[in-house]
Amino acid sequence: MSSLLPSDTHRSAVDESGGDLRVLPLDDDEAAGVINCLTADTARSTLAALQQESATASELADAVDTSLQNVRHHLDSLREVGLVRVVGTRYSVKGREMKVYGTTEDSLVVCVGEGSERLRPAE
């Protein structure tokens, strides 16, 4: 019986979109950080909005109907775990420089269950 996932997948494999494919076993500290970050509804909504279009923190606050402070908190968390990055800058009406956020081009797989040890990155 063939597997849907190749058994030689590595953390640095390239996915079809040109980004890296990150494979994390469930017991990995990095996987724990990603999972913890995505437990918040606002973080998931923010990430989903950024998958549609890059945006500033204030645009995201409007899009996910929350405060600017709350969005900035979740953007920091999403950046820390490598799901979001700064993709550019824009200037406000008042001439202030604002960061524009977008998703990383990486794909991420967190492995759970029997056989997931085959997908662990090579040491």
Rank of each mutant, 00 (worst) to 15 (best):
118 R>S: 12
111 C>H: 05
95 G>P: 08
115 G>F: 08
95 G>V: 08
118 R>T: 12
106 D>T: 01
106 D>C: 02
101 Y>S: 05
121 P>I: 00
115 G>T: 09
101 Y>K: 07
120 R>V: 14
108 L>Q: 02
118 R>H: 13
98 M>S: 00
95 G>D: 02
96 R>S: 12
105 E>A: 08
110 V>I: 12
106 D>N: 11
113 G>H: 08
93 V>R: 12
112 V>I: 14
107 S>I: 01
101 Y>I: 04
95 G>N: 08
100 V>A: 09
117 E>D: 15
98 M>C: 02
98 M>L: 09
99 K>A: 13
110 V>W: 01
117 E>K: 12
116 S>W: 10
120 R>I: 14
105 E>W: 04
112 V>K: 02
109 V>H: 00
108 L>S: 01
108 L>I: 08
110 V>G: 05
111 C>V: 03
119 L>Y: 13
123 E>G: 15
109 V>N: 00
98 M>G: 00
102 G>N: 04
120 R>G: 10
110 V>Y: 01
121 P>C: 15
105 E>V: 05
104 T>E: 15
101 Y>H: 08
111 C>A: 14
96 R>K: 14
108 L>H: 02
103 T>C: 06
98 M>A: 04
116 S>M: 11
97 E>C: 09
117 E>Q: 13
94 K>I: 04
102 G>T: 01
99 K>L: 12
99 K>N: 11
122 A>W: 12
99 K>T: 07
96 R>N: 13
102 G>H: 07
118 R>V: 07
98 M>K: 10
117 E>T: 13
93 V>M: 12
117 E>H: 15
105 E>Q: 02
93 V>D: 15
104 T>K: 08
108 L>G: 01
103 T>M: 03
104 T>N: 13
111 C>M: 10
98 M>P: 00
119 L>N: 00
103 T>H: 09
116 S>C: 11
114 E>K: 00
98 M>H: 05
99 K>I: 00
105 E>K: 00
116 S>G: 09
115 G>H: 10
113 G>M: 09
107 S>H: 09
97 E>W: 07
120 R>A: 15
122 A>S: 13
109 V>M: 01
104 T>S: 04
123 E>Y: 15
108 L>W: 07
97 E>H: 08
104 T>G: 13
98 M>N: 04
116 S>V: 05
120 R>H: 03
123 E>H: 12
100 V>G: 10
100 V>S: 12
109 V>T: 02
97 E>S: 11
94 K>N: 11
115 G>N: 11
120 R>S: 15
95 G>H: 02
110 V>H: 07
98 M>Q: 09
109 V>W: 02
122 A>C: 09
97 E>R: 11
101 Y>P: 00
121 P>V: 06
93 V>P: 04
105 E>S: 07
